[in-house]
Computed example of a mutant assay.
Amino acid sequence: MSFNNKIQLKHVLLSTVALSLLGCDANSANNEQVVQSQSNSVVVFEHTEMATPIKTMPQHHFFGRVQGSESYNMALFVDGRIERVLVKEGQIVSAGDVLATLYSPSLALRVKSRESGYESAKAILHQAKIQQKRSSELVKQKLQPSAVLEDAERALKVATQQVNNALAQLEEAKNQQRETQLVAPQAGVIGKLYSRAGDYINAGESIVRFESSETQKVVFSLPERIAISLPKTESVQVSFPNLNMTTIGTVTEKSLPNIGQPALFEVTVSLPNGNYEQLGVTAQLHVPISNDRLYKVSHSALRYDPSNRAYLLSAVDYNKLPVTVIAVEKDGVLLTSDKALLHPLSRVSEIINPLNLAVLEKR
């Protein structure tokens, strides 16, 4: 092939490539703009798109166990051997139910003795009332002197005082006996038994753990950022996966992390309308990742400034729109914005040209 033929072939190839590029430009959509990069091997198309609002905000999930709002260990303030344990773990009890008793035969005998004394005093009082009434009738009929009536009235006063004293002694004995009985202060559930019948316990040693069933709570361990974002009285969603139930709780307490321990805050959530089925089960706290608007955009719409802060570029006025990236998915990026994204966004995609014109011209 002659030198002139080579030159002609080269010009034909250049013309063909130029025409193909012009054809691409003519067939591109109205929202696409062709931009020639510094390197002839890359052709850049600038596109626009609309951010897609996402209604369902992703959530953080934390786990805890349901317990009574009033959960505490119960003990007696006297030493002794446990005579009977009248409850089992997980048993539902009512206010006033006896949970356990200590062996104390002397106190039992004292109560019986005081009960007998009280009954005797009441019998004497009854006879004194009858005698006083009879004497009063006889004096009215002038069948007895008034001195007899005065003696009967004095005897009635003494009998009344004896009944009051006997009753006080009986109550004292019963109070002493109550110190050997562990009684449920309110309706609830026995969470755990620490002692059994026959065990010897010291004063103040725990016998059972009691959990009230009237009100319930869940304690969750949360990272600092999330715990701070949940103020007290905040309403939060709590679910019970194994019971297939969901409810709305209220944040009531937030405790600070222990020094030297992981920076986790213990956040207490009170539950409404507690029931026995929920005690001890796993609860799940749902916290939205953000309270801002959630959108989805393509990967090429997301940009970063020199400080590595994410933003979008408005295709209308080319202003930067700061955003926070929530998650990167295969088909796009989830992000939040404190402002509504209502206008087209600019995005850039690169297409590598298979034919490098600069290299071809050098040949």
Rank of each mutant, 00 (worst) to 15 (best):
A227F: 02
A203T: 12
R110G: 09
F220K: 10
N275R: 15
F77E: 15
F77V: 08
R209V: 08
G117K: 04
S314L: 05
K88A: 15
L335I: 05
V251C: 06
N353Q: 13
K88P: 09
Q237M: 12
K140H: 04
E329H: 11
L193M: 07
A128R: 00
V183N: 05
L285V: 12
L86P: 04
V348K: 13
R347D: 07
Q216H: 04
L13R: 13
Q141L: 13
L107I: 13
V219A: 13
Q59G: 07
H47C: 01
V218T: 07
L302Y: 10
H126W: 00
T180E: 00
I201V: 15
N319Q: 08
A166Y: 07
Q144P: 03
N353M: 09
E70G: 12
E70Q: 15
L138F: 03
A152F: 12
G64N: 09
V183E: 05
N5H: 08
P288H: 04
V139C: 08
K339T: 12
C24H: 05
P58C: 03
A283Y: 03
N356M: 01
F220M: 10
E214H: 12
R309H: 11
L167E: 14
N202R: 13
S235F: 10
S290C: 01
L243T: 06
Q127Y: 02
N164F: 11
V287W: 00
F240A: 05
M1V: 02
L109Y: 13
D331Y: 03
G68D: 07
A310N: 07
I326R: 07
P306H: 03
Y118M: 14
P257V: 09
I201F: 06
L102R: 06
I259P: 03
I228N: 14
L360D: 02
G68V: 12
E224S: 13
L302R: 09
K133P: 00
G332H: 06
G204Y: 11
H11C: 02
Q59H: 08
E277R: 13
E70C: 13
A166V: 07
A128F: 02
K55P: 01
N175H: 01
A159F: 11
V267M: 10
D79T: 12
S255P: 08
V12E: 09
V17D: 07
L170A: 00
V163K: 15
R363F: 03
V98I: 15
V148T: 15
L9K: 14
N273A: 11
L22I: 05
L109Q: 15
E214K: 13
E119T: 11
T160C: 03
P185D: 07
L125D: 05
L312R: 02
K192E: 15
S135K: 06
A340E: 14
G96Q: 08
C24V: 11
L182C: 05
N164P: 01
S69A: 14
M74Q: 13
F63P: 05
L230R: 08
R178H: 01
K140N: 07
M57A: 02
L312H: 03
A283M: 08
R209G: 11
I351P: 01
L193D: 10
K339H: 07
Q261K: 12
D331W: 05
I289G: 01
V93C: 08
D97T: 10
S146R: 15
N242V: 14
N40S: 14
D199K: 05
V78M: 06
V43F: 06
K217S: 09
D151F: 12
G332D: 06
P231A: 04
